[in-house]
Nucleic acid binder design. Structure first.
Length: 419
RNA sequence: GGGGGAAUGUCCCGAGCGGCAAAGGGGGCGGACUGUAAAUCCGCUGGCUAUGCCUUCGCAGGUUCGAGUCCUGCUUCCCCCA
């Protein structure tokens, strides 16, 4: 790949920005992309009501595809989510109800409208749900037309399966079938929509290639696979998981300010890589930012945070978050735009203890934890460290605008606002 | 079908003579140092109306002043023999 010189803008961009881990056929795919007729899809499971930053690389690949003249298709796994993907997973996934899947799907849909332009034109994005063909599959017909093309011998040798077998871990027949369905998706998407490329994370390689193979046997044109590297931070942690949980893309799951903070806290060593993957800044600009050393790299992190946030939540909200952060961290002002929890005046009248207040604000999980944090000097009210766990928040602790700033550690702040 | 082993603190791994809120890691959180970074060091890491009370060791019973630990039955998983 290193010496491959693509002529398509699509591959040029993806290679230059570090999106590519593996490709089944660079030259062939490049040809297709350069002709301006490339349609590609990426499958997304409907296992949660929102996608998180772990899916962001995939979303960005679809976006770049559209920007470079291709047609992107996010595929909702409305059908496959009912089965569960064993790839790279040690445990079987629990089966979700149809209602859950449906509402998850709706939550996930919204994020794509931020990244892609949908419509009916030839380069407009299209959202498809594989429930469209999977749910009406007839078992006998499927076996006859599709099942006969799968080699169990080969499937057993696939990493995702082998791993489970080697460790003597249960792999149900249902899960085993996941890869067949995913392969079938690819073929079906080609027949119905002319899609010739499936992209995904590197853990999807086997599934994607199986789809290409199935296509060959079932008479599709040449199909292609393109995977992105599995993203970890420089210190090896998986992308997208933090202490409190996943870094969700939907604002109702994670406040914009917190999303901005997630990027702001990027490790030094990751800044350049993340700028390339998660922003659309020109590469020479990124090269300049990467040169920043020492404390100056913080400027690059702020740009990363704002750019990445703008992509999901819009420029205004991103700049708002940046401003809030500047007030909070650099100017020492209590910004009224911090994430806010509302309480009633009568809560205060009834005597609101610090412990309960921090629990209510969601900064600690229990009053016991609040006590521990107080002991460790980790809780502050209006920037004053709390030492007495029996202290009450009276009306006088609420500032002019009726809010108290509660802080856990130096980074997490929540406003408690009196309604 | 027969024989053997395993299940532990609801993040994970993992010790546990009958006195156990249960060793030790990892992870996470907080503190110190910094640059809202990394590395390092220190502390914490069941719940509550809290000098006490309640709930935890696969499930259900039993023995005992007292059970994660002993006995019985059950569930699940693994190994060996058939």
């Amino acid at each position: 790949m290193s010496d491959f010189k693509p002529k398509s803008e699509f591959l040029q961009t993806l290679i230059a920005r570090g999106y590519i881990h593996q490709c089944s056929d660079y030259a062939g795919l490049d040809e297709k992309a350069a002709s301006g007729t490339l349609s590609a899809y990426i499958g997304f499971d409907c296992t949660a009501p929102s996608l998180h930053v772990g899916s962001l690389v995939q979303i960005m690949m679809l976006r770049w595809l559209q920007k470079t003249g291709g047609k992107p298709v996010p595929l909702m796994g409305g059908g496959t989510t009912r089965v569960g993907d064993p790839s790279g997973r040690d445990e079987s996934r629990k089966i979700l109800t149809l209602d859950d899947i449906e509402s998850n799907k709706n939550g996930i849909k919204t994020v794509f409208s931020k990244f892609l332009t949908f419509g009916s034109g030839s380069h407009d994005a299209l959202m498809i749900d594989n429930a469209e063909w999977l749910t009406t599959l007839n078992y006998i017909e499927f076996l006859r037309d599709v099942g006969r093309h799968f080699s169990v011998n080969r499937m057993l040798s696939m990493d995702s399966v082998k791993m489970r077998l080697d460790r003597d871990q249960e792999l149900s027949f249902l899960e085993f079938n996941y890869m067949c369905l995913q392969a079938y998706d690819f073929v079906e998407l080609n027949k119905r929509y002319g899609i010739t490329l499936q992209m995904g994370g590197s853990d999807q390689w086997g599934n994607i290639v199986t789809g290409i193979d199935l296509g060959r046997r079932m008479g599709t044109p040449q199909l292609y696979a393109l995977t992105s590297p599995l993203l970890t931070t420089a210190s090896g942690a998986k992308m997208g998981k933090t202490a409190q949980g996943a870094v969700w893309l939907n604002a109702d799951m994670l406040p914009v300010y917190d999303y901005w903070q997630f990027w702001r806290n990027t490790e030094d060593r990751d800044v350049g890589r993340f700028l390339k993957l998660f922003t659309e800044l020109p590469l020479d600009e990124i090269a300049r930012l990467e040169q920043l050393g020492g404390a100056e790299i913080n400027e690059a992190k702020k740009i990363l945070a704002t750019e990445a946030t703008a992509m999901v939540h819009g420029r205004d909200a991103a700049e708002q978050a940046e401003l809030t952060a500047r007030k909070t961290f650099e100017e020492g002002i209590t910004a009224d735009t911090l994430p806010t929890i509302t309480i009633t005046a009568s809560d205060v009248d009834a005597g609101l203890g610090v412990l309960a207040a921090f629990v209510k604000a969601g900064l600690v999980a229990s009053t016991s934890e609040a006590r521990r944090q107080i002991k460790a000097g980790g809780l502050r009210v209006n920037d004053a460290v709390i030492s007495d766990d029996r202290a009450n928040l009276g009306h006088d602790t609420f500032m002019h605008d009726g809010a108290v700033k509660l802080s856990l550690g130096k980074k997490k702040h929540v406003l408690l606002k009196r309604a």
